[in-house]
Amino acid sequence: MKKVFVFLLILSLCSLLTACGEQEDPDSPASLYLAVQYGMQYAPVYVMQELGLLEEALPGVELQWSNLGGGSAMNEALISGSLDVAFMGIPPVLIAIDKGADYRISCGICVPPAQLMVRADSGITQLSDISEQQRIAVPSITSIQHIMLAMACQKQLGDAHALDENLVAMTNPDAYIALSSGSQVAGHFASMPYIAYEQADGFVSILDAEDCLGSGASIVCVTTPEVAENEQLHNALLDCLQEAISLINARDEQVLQIIAEREHITLEEVETYLDWEGSLYASEVYSLTELGEFMAEYGYLSKDFAGFSSVTWETAVEGQPSDAQDAE
């Protein structure tokens, strides 16, 4: 009896594990699973969502939206087959593709400002001033801020991993509180609107995206092969994102209102943050090659970076730093 019970237990465990691996058919045109993160850098996505652009372009397709808290969670959801479209920073996408994931970048949506803010009284004016005890907060390991900091370390200190021991993974709100409370966190590699909050509180910037990369890096739209191969679906998604980007760049009043409501800020703040130096809403993909080459060279990827087209679908257009400066 006991042996039969053990056998049945193992059998049920096996069937349970097999069931875990089963995925819903993502190719089904009946539904599309999309995930976005929090922050103004994702404005084209939630503007598209609020205006119902995708619903209009894809009648009959049920859109299932979710909010996830970072590139790592996006990767897990994409790999497990629970997502078709994700919006995220470039480094986690490159890591996933390096590990064998089959999804690719379809387009960019935004180049957000990124600045390393430090307390004015910390005595830090450059990276070499950061002591062993002082901590630098980044949203997570492998986030764009982490990789940018590593690039700056390589440039300024000659060692990409020089500040690895000083890193601490904290969300933007937690890092803002930690920085303000006079803790060991002496620096925060922040994005908007925390750059503005910290600047208003007297913190100073010692490094920005341009210092690290030459230009900012895009937040990108990532799609699975099933979506990319479905031309109608893929084109509709890209067109809707482009329309949302154009509306943001035209400072459309309804769109500004949507952003203000989503971010819980005033219309004046929306305009200030949209006009912030280094901020660009564009469908081109910026700094992908620079990031890929750096990550491969300094051990963040296990294989060589095979170029822009190896991690993008045909629809992706590589942005040039000079174009970004002109557009700003």
Partner: peptide, 8 residues
């Protein structure tokens, strides 16, 4: 959740 002790 927090990675409060950095890389160490």
């Amino acid at each position: 959740v927090y990675g409060v002790i950095g890389n160490r």
